[in-house]
Design a protein around this nucleic acid. Structure first.
Lengths: 152, 152
DNA sequence: CTTGAAAAGAACTGCCT
DNA sequence: AGGCAGTTCTTTTCAAG
């Protein structure tokens, strides 16, 4: 495992929040020069600690004002049913995130819909018809706040 | 609300997956030139549809191999208790995501821990001592798959 | 680690179809 | 809207302290 020092952690903290910053800006923020910052970022990327760069979309601005989290417990758990379920759930365009979990539920899904009516349509016609669905729990998201996480 | 055409949607689909691509590369992928692609990306950013750019971290590579989702129902729901709870939960470094939700639970938290022992420590000393916690449900994440979402 | 420099490429601008 | 050409900036690599 690669060991990171405080400077690496500071760099990650910045880039997780805003990856538009240049290596020079990041370097200035953490008290090192541009080449040093660049080398560190490259090392973190090469070692897979930085796993990728993505743009974040404003779902509301795209007309998808409703985000719902579903907890799904499968009725019949066989080896094949997990794969069947995953294949089917992956084909639903409104599903943003599929998490295989251990606990009260077997899967957690993040769904985006235009409005509650649209969500009901997705739930009835897409989710409830998935192979093997048992108990389904829904939580509508009101607000969300991302935190830096274990980096501090 | 800004209306997007198919080209805009194609651009977003690419950048949500990998934002390291240059405007020229994105343009080539959607069949337009570099300046046209750049102008579209800028417009999408200015209109807030692209809400930001972030690096994705590999929590496992950072030594945080365990991700747990907590559903939390507050015991006493008063006007102040929501704010007290949010303030306290925000101060826990292992909390990556705080979602205020409507449904069976009041909040959903994403927690990262080094291992299950570490998670138990966080749960007992940090989560269970939060102001107003009632019912707590935990799901340990096994795997996660992101999908393009409503864009296609 | 730093500074400085140079080459490549990406970002940005103005003009034209 | 898109394309072309040019300018400015960052990125990326180097040498040297």
């Amino acid at each position: 495992m690669t060991d990171l020092d405080d400077t690496d952690r500071a760099i990650l903290r910045i880039l997780v929040h805003d990856a538009t910053q240049s290596a020079a800006q990041v370097g200035r923020a953490v008290g090192i020069g541009q080449p040093a910052a660049w080398r560190r970022i490259k090392r973190l990327t090469d070692h897979g600690i930085i796993a990728g760069r993505r743009v974040m979309l404003d779902n509301a601005a795209l007309g998808f004002g409703v985000t719902v989290f579903l907890g799904i417990r499968l009725a019949a758990k066989g080896r094949t049913s997990l794969e069947d379920f995953e294949r089917a759930v992956t084909a639903i365009p409104e599903v943003q995130l599929v998490q295989h979990v251990l606990g009260q539920f077997d899967y957690r899904l993040r769904i985006t819909a235009r409005d509650i009516t649209d969500f009901e349509r997705i739930l009835r016609r897409r989710i409830m018809t998935l192979p093997g669905v048992g108990q389904v729990e829904a939580n509508v998201m009101l607000s969300e706040e991302r935190r830096p996480g274990p980096l501090g």
